[in-house]
């Protein structure tokens, strides 16, 4: 098994982070272990350390059941570690994190516009501002024609756009995405990946993105963090060298293929181990 590369420290040095004022990372996962079951018989995560800086787009990849979603859900305050801690630096009064779920989790009893506006409605955003923001987001996500449609009338791609728009509506400091495109067909997945690239470029928010697709991780991320089969540990942390704003065409380059091959050669053994 490959050893963990201390890339995050190296990265920080590269960015001048270590020499400049010691600014704590936006998200800091410290020695997190997660056991399930009354006797702790299932070991989901083991001694995970991870630092994510503000404005970084970090992709977590690993075989099924490696605990990558568990880790994401801890950052979202949905799961709690058995030991260790997750620390998040919150700078504003608004929501620190918002999550986009794989199965959309939009409410079938609310229209598209109501779904996107709901978090704003409950946090007391004035109606005029709310309407404006929802309209702008629907415009951005090509949802305007469906404002009054119920989710049951939407395709998977459209439903996931609603889910992303809802998360962006609250302008979270950290956007968490749990395999958001896994349930979509290949073409729709590509389109939404391209859209996400340009959305990210606009405000360069901190994003933690869980996926099992290496290609997706390399296309979208500034870093790709590779996790081992259960119990999940971090076994690789790759910096993605492609420049921003990143163009979707980077998928077809030789460098992309080589990087994918390099990471895959490390992941492959883990995937096989997970399926044994």
């Amino acid at each position: 098994m490959a050893t963990r590369q201390p890339v995050s420290t190296a990265l920080a040095a590269e960015y001048g982070g270590l020499d400049a004022a010691p600014r704590p990372p936006k998200i800091s996962v410290e020695a997190v272990t997660k056991l399930y079951g009354r006797k702790g018989e299932v070991r989901a995560l083991e001694n995970v350390d991870l630092e994510i800086n503000e404005g970084e787009f970090v992709c977590l990849v690993g075989p099924s059941g490696c605990g990558k979603s568990t880790l994401l859900r801890m950052i979202a305050d949905l799961h709690y570690p058995t030991s260790g801690s997750v620390k998040i630096q919150a700078s504003g009064p608004g929501l620190t994190t918002a999550m986009v779920f794989q199965n959309y989790s939009i409410f079938p009893w609310k229209t598209v516009a109501e779904n996107i506006g709901l978090p704003l409605e409950v946090n007391g955003t004035p109606k005029a501002e709310r309407v404006d923001r929802v309209a702008a987001l629907m415009d951005r996500m090509n949802l305007s024609d469906f404002a009054d449609a119920l989710p049951s009338a939407l395709s998977g791609g459209m439903a996931q756009r609603v889910s992303i728009a809802r998360a962006l509506a609250v302008q979270p400091e950290i956007l968490l995405m749990d395999e958001p495109f896994a349930a979509l067909d290949a073409q729709m997945r590509r389109i939404l990946q391209d859209e996400l690239l340009s959305i990210w470029q606009e405000d360069q928010r901190t994003v933690v993105f869980v996926t099992h697709s290496l290609e997706e991780a390399i296309l979208l991320g500034d870093r790709v963090v590779v996790m081992s089969a259960r119990p999940g540990k971090i076994i690789g942390d790759y910096r993605i060298p492609f420049e921003r704003p990143r163009r979707p065409e980077v998928r077809g380059t030789k460098e992309f293929a080589e990087l994918e091959q390099e990471i895959w050669s490390q992941m492959r053994g883990e995937v096989e181990r997970a399926n044994k």
Partner: peptide, 20 residues
């Protein structure tokens, strides 16, 4: 800037005891 810490709750520290 404020730090949000997500840490083990009693149920994580002693799941068996908590269930009992």
């Amino acid at each position: 800037m404020k730090t949000i810490a997500i840490e083990p709750r009693p149920i994580e520290l002693d799941p068996d005891g908590f269930a009992r």
